Simulated assay, not measured.
Amino acid sequence: MAAKLTTDTPGQIGLLRTANRFVLAPMSRASAYKDGTPTAAMARYYAEFAKGGFGLLIAEGAFTDDVFAQSYSNQPGLVTDAHQAGWAQVVTAVKAEGGRIILQLIHAGAVSQHVDTPHAPSAIRPKGSMLVGYGHKQGAYGIPEVLSLDDIDNVVGGFVSAAKRAERAGFDGVEIHCANGYLLDQFLTPESNTRTDKYGGDIANRLRLTCDILSEVKARATTGFLVGVRLSQAKATEPDYFWHNGLQDAGQIFDSVAAAGADFIHLASEAKGYAYHSATKSGENLTSFAKRLTGLPVIANGGLQDVSLANEILGADQADFVAVGKTALLNPDLPKRLRAGLPLRAFSYDMFKYGVTIDAQEKWTQEQTVNV
Rank of each mutant, 00 (worst) to 15 (best):
G295Y: 07
V23W: 04
G246A: 08
G251C: 07
G135F: 02
Q233V: 08
G135M: 08
N301H: 09
Y274G: 06
H136Q: 14
P144N: 12
K281C: 11
K272W: 07
N205E: 09
Y72V: 11
Q252F: 05
R206C: 11
L78R: 03
I203D: 05
G246E: 10
D255K: 06
D240P: 00
D151T: 07
V257M: 04
G61E: 07
V372L: 03
S71W: 08
G181M: 00
S73M: 02
Y141P: 03
N311F: 11
F22P: 00
T9S: 09
K164H: 08
D197G: 13
L57M: 15
G325L: 00
L188T: 07
P332D: 02
L330Y: 06
G139M: 04
L78C: 08
H244N: 15
T37Q: 06
D255S: 15
Y276N: 15
D150E: 13
G224N: 11
G246V: 01
L5A: 08
D66C: 05
R125V: 10
E191K: 07
A41Y: 09
N301I: 05
Q305M: 10
V146A: 10
G201A: 09
L344K: 07
R292L: 05
G224R: 10
V156W: 06
G139C: 13
L131M: 12
W243V: 14
V146Y: 04
D153L: 05
L188P: 00
N205L: 12
T117F: 10
Q104H: 01
K281P: 12
N371L: 15
S215Y: 11
D333N: 08
E312K: 14
A260K: 03
N245G: 06
S161G: 11
E367M: 13
Q138G: 15
A258T: 15
S282W: 04
L149P: 00
F63R: 05
T117A: 09
C178I: 09
L207A: 15
G200C: 03
K34Q: 14
I313H: 01
A140I: 12
K51L: 04
N331L: 05
Q104E: 13
I213V: 14
D81F: 06
P335H: 02
I124F: 01
E191M: 01
A310Y: 05
Y134S: 12
A316K: 15
R220F: 09
Q12Y: 07
F54S: 09
